[in-house]
Design a protein around this nucleic acid. Structure first.
Ligand code: MN
Ligand code: MN
Ligand code: ZN
Ligand code: ZN
Lengths: 161, 161
DNA sequence: TCCAAACTTAGAAGCATTCCAAATAAGAGA
DNA sequence: TCTCTTATTTGGAATGCTTCTAAGTTTGGA
């Protein structure tokens, strides 16, 4: 859950992107954009679908995918790829930052790192690529999952020593 | 195609990783490691399978996936994710660098950027994550594909002006 | 040489994502 | 506000990458 200000800023940006592309602002698209703007945890299409389905019973998974594709195609959302699950995670925060993906609990969190801001500009200018999105991800095991794995390996270590 | 020295260094590293993990160095695994070490273009499992099948007719796609999984699990190879195709691309060069993926021709190339070297260390120390791999990718359109798209949009532009 | 465990293989299965055709709704203009 | 065109939504089918499975093969140690 982001702060209301950040939320608002992101939501506006997403809606503007759709509008400027000549796409219609349907109820479903608005809901998806709003959800993406609030969520800080890099949801998958399924996550979005499950979260919105109760309030929008007619919502289809295909619509979620269509909307995400549109937003990614417009560069308004980044497709980070999978996190040990086999589902693509999406990031509505397109400001330069590092993402940390845990391949055990499949969570993706942000890691602030000022240096990253420069990279994209340098690459854009020097490569000749038309950059649509970034996928700056380190994957591995989050602290919690490391601990869980250790305890799994030595279940009675504390008692036996 | 990398230089022979680099190739050799990467191949040794991959084989060592398998060996140290107690895994057997089968003919198939050696072939896959050798191919990964030579190839500079971030192949998919299918790419590897197609390239090696002629010389190793018994090779199975499952073995390619198994070997890649093992190497990724050991942190010896990075799984970059897809590039507009729906197949995961793999990178045997785990030195810190940026990858540029074109979502039209599905090619992935390296982009040298010294700054990147620092990032991983900082993240590793500050986050508490056990980092297994990196996915530093900018996706977009390569120069060639941008040109191709422009000509597609205005096929007779040159003639009509 | 013999054996147990690891590995490979072909094909089936799983599942995220895409495709499709019919039903619906957005939004421009009257 | 009402109408009309057309983009969009929807559920289900289809696609295709990846994983699983069970049987056969290979490996390396005893
Ligand atoms: Mn993020
Ligand atoms: Mn690379
Ligand atoms: Zn975790
Ligand atoms: Zn291209």
């Amino acid at each position: 859950m982001r702060t209301p200000e950040v939320q608002q800023r992101i939501e506006s940006r997403l809606l503007s992107a759709l509008r400027q592309a000549g796409l219609r602002l349907t109820l479903q698209r608005r809901a998806i954009c709003r959800f993406l703007a609030q969520s800080e945890d890099h949801p998958t299409a399924q996550d979005i679908y499950r979260a919105l389905k109760p309030q929008y019973p007619s919502l289809s998974l295909a619509t979620v995918y269509n909307t995400l594709d549109a937003l990614v195609r417009l560069g308004a959302v980044h497709r980070l790829g999978e996190a040990g699950d086999d589902a693509a995670h999406y990031d509505a925060d397109i400001s330069p930052h590092i993402n940390l993906a845990c391949i055990r609990c499949h969570r993706v969190v942000d890691f602030p790192l000022p240096d990253v801001a420069r990279l994209e500009d340098v690459v854009r200018q020097a490569s000749g690529y038309r950059i649509l999105g970034a996928r700056m991800v380190y994957y591995g095991l989050c602290p919690e999952c490391q601990q869980a794995l250790n305890q799994e390996a030595q279940p009675t270590a504390a008692a036996s020593e």
